[in-house]
């Protein structure tokens, strides 16, 4: 093998943890326990775009240039989402979770890692159709303030509208998605009434603690970006935040299997990854 190229790869594996440590020390954002494969991919691409020769060179830049750090933060945050993503999840949620929520006079919900908010509005639409929204308080959180600002506005490009509408129908929506938005200047704006029960807030799953006791947590397609230790830590945070018999909804390819708290949750729908906290 070409010794230079092999050495490059070896050095990268040494440099990446140092780079993440530097970001943590300097800016307080902690990516040290993210999945290495994801981090490596994103940093390698940033390195190519920014024409850095090495990760160490890029580390020098990130320590001294805050605007460069902000762009890196965008690279490292997970912002892919869509309305009614995984429609089967929402239909299962209607079937398995909604009847239970009905029994509560007041329902507190935490949507962790909400990105630009499309799935928060999807949940609000579902709850509205089930006549539950007025009884709910939804906390939608993310560590990226830029995406939270977009979420608060509830304005999205129309390019994905067809997909959103199809998802809505497949999810068991009771009306038409167009009942919930208006089209303006090539964008779709979601009905303000959907967000009146939502508080969008800055919260970092890695470094922040429990901020409320809730009856339901949705955290979908976030844990796959974490390593095993961090997954355990975050699930423990969810466990502490959930009220007795509260629900936890993860992404379709995420699971509590092999995590430390697996036995503290019951499987409600194993294919859609809906769990319920066991009564102690």
């Amino acid at each position: 093998m070409n010794p230079n190229q092999l050495e490059d790869l070896e050095n990268i594996d040494i440099e990446i943890p140092l780079f993440l440590e530097a970001i943590f020390q300097k800016y307080g954002y902690d990516f040290r326990d993210y999945s290495t494969a994801h981090i490596k991919r994103r940093l390698m691409h940033r390195m190519a775009i920014g024409r850095f020769e090495t990760i160490s060179q890029m580390q020098d830049k990130v320590l001294r240039d805050k605007s460069f750090f902000i762009s890196l933060l965008e690279d490292l945050s997970i912002n892919v989402t869509e309305m009614f993503r995984d429609p089967e999840f929402y239909s299962s949620f209607r079937e398995h979770v909604v009847p239970n929520l009905r029994t509560y006079p007041f329902i507190k919900i935490w949507h962790a890692g909400c990105a630009t908010g499309e799935e928060v509005y999807s949940l609000a639409i579902l709850l509205k159709e089930e006549n539950l929204l007025d009884r709910c308080q939804i906390y939608a959180t993310d560590f990226n303030r830029r995406v939270l600002d977009i979420a608060k506005l509830g304005i999205y490009p129309t390019q994905d509208l067809e997909k959103f509408s199809r998802n809505y129908i497949e999810s068991g929506g009771k009306g038409k998605l167009s009942d919930y938005y208006t089209l303006k200047y090539g964008s779709l704006k979601l009905d303000q009434s959907l967000s009146k029960k939502v508080v969008f807030a800055d919260h970092n799953l890695v470094t922040d603690n429990v901020f409320a006791e809730v009856n339901l947590i949705l955290c979908r397609n976030v844990l796959i970006y974490f390593n095993k230790d961090l997954q355990n830590k975050v699930i423990n945070l969810f466990f502490k935040s959930l009220s007795s018999s509260g629900f936890l909804c993860l992404g379709t390819k995420e699971s509590l299997r092999f995590t430390q708290l697996e036995s503290n949750f019951a499987n409600i729908d194993s294919s859609q990854k809906i769990y319920k906290k066991r009564i102690n």
Binding site: A37, H38, V80
Partner: peptide, 21 residues
Amino acid sequence: APPNYHILIENNSTIALSTDP
């Protein structure tokens, strides 16, 4: 690879999935 997920290889010889763009 599952539909709708990217698949990557981790340093510790495990599989990582991602919903990146």
